[in-house]
């Protein structure tokens, strides 16, 4: 029990501390922006991690919710002059509803079919974002008004803490789902749907619920991305976005608690450090994705957790040695 608690909250404390002091360590708006983007993509990754890493449902359409959240957020502010918190809430609710409407029929499909159906859904959203110029601003997208909260303009640093707060909240939600009966049921659905239903799990309901939750995570990430970038454009729902998501998830480690943070940090920061290598980005992401899948399929986060787990539960290291042979998560 206590080792589980430790496993959940030790990384949380570390992340919280890093997040809180980071602005003092960083110099200039550019570095602060990179830090914010890391939190944004960690949120995005956590949603995908719940959906695929834990529940085993591969969606290649998460970028659609990322975009729908961001566009809704922008449109609610532009057309209805909603305040930031209300527009944020609006974006999340719209994504939850769309997630439910799409999830119900689509989750009857499995594996490749599910992946393709969600990808096609995202292509439709992308096409709409590109083509419905009057509404979405076409290729150039929409601008998001300068963020303000309760009448006060948000400075760059305030925005940082807002985005960081969202990431921290998302982490808690993730831990909650993972470490209660919800997470167990989702694992069961991933492993064997028939056996899951015979022990009393409503498989359809769980699949749809986690799809909606992942859509809401994507919405929050998309909105935060729009806040940081001061606008939305069709690239939010583009194929590049899902490659980013897959890369960060695999590099960080599918099913790992801290994976999305590590993955996001690496995937966001790496291209910035390799300055001037921007045009190599697609290539590097592809190579990174493949290399990790072949040589470190648990990702960095999963591997760290694995070795830490051994020392938490079992000082002799006996069990961790045995666990190496355990089957891979998909």
């Amino acid at each position: 029990m206590s080792s589980t608690t430790l496993r959940n909250w030790l990384p949380a404390t570390v992340i919280l501390m890093i997040g809180a002091v980071l602005p003092w360590l960083l110099q200039g708006n550019f570095q602060l922006r990179i830090a914010m983007l890391t939190w944004v993509f960690a949120i995005f990754g956590m949603g995908f991690n719940l959906l695929y890493g834990i529940a085993g449902q591969l969606s290649l359409g998460q970028q659609a919710f990322f975009a729908i959240g961001a566009y809704t957020f922008a449109l609610l502010q532009i057309h209805f002059a909603l305040s930031l918190p209300l527009a944020l809430l609006g974006g999340i609710v719209v994504c939850a509803v769309v997630g439910l409407v799409i999830g119900l029929p689509v989750l009857r499909l499995r594996t490749h079919y599910l992946a393709m159906a969600t990808l096609m859904f995202a292509m439709i959203v992308h096409d709409v974002a590109l083509r419905w110029t009057d509404f979405t601003g076409g290729t150039s997208g929409l601008r998001v008004p300068p963020p303000s909260l309760f009448g006060a303009r948000l400075e760059r640093i305030d925005l940082y803490y807002l985005v960081f707060g969202l990431a921290a909240a998302a982490y808690c939600l993730q831990i909650f789902i993972k470490s209660t009966h919800l997470g167990r049921a989702l694992e069961a659905v991933k492993t064997d749907e028939t056996a899951a239903s015979s022990v009393g799990i409503d498989v359809t309901r769980y699949k749809v619920s986690i799809f909606v939750v992942a859509a809401m995570f994507a919405a929050v990430a998309g909105i935060a991305y729009a806040l940081v970038s001061r606008g939305v454009d069709p690239s939010y729902s583009g194929i590049g976005m899902v490659v980013n998501l897959l890369t960060l998830s695999v590099v960080g480690g599918l099913g790992s608690r801290i994976g999305p943070f590590i993955g996001a940090a690496i995937v966001i920061i790496a291209p910035q450090i390799l300055a001037g290598l921007q045009e190599y980005q697609t290539l590097i992401y592809g190579v990174g994705l493949l290399v990790f899948m072949i040589f470190l399929p648990r990702g960095i986060g999963g591997s760290i957790e694995r070795s830490a787990e051994g020392s938490f539960d079992d000082p002799k290291g006996e069990k961790s040695a045995r666990r190496i042979s355990r089957a891979e998560t998909p």
């Binding site: 069961a188 492993t191 056996a195 799990i201 939750v213």
Partner: peptide, 29 residues
């Protein structure tokens, strides 16, 4: 035998009692 192989033994047994737990994500939260 159809166990959930990579969950622990006790987690497998706990899943059998799933019907007794609070259902749904929102209500659990």
């Amino acid at each position: 035998v159809r166990l959930f192989g990579h969950l622990s033994v006790i987690e497998n047994v706990m899943l059998g009692g799933h019907c007794r737990t609070t259902q749904g994500f929102a209500s659990s939260l």
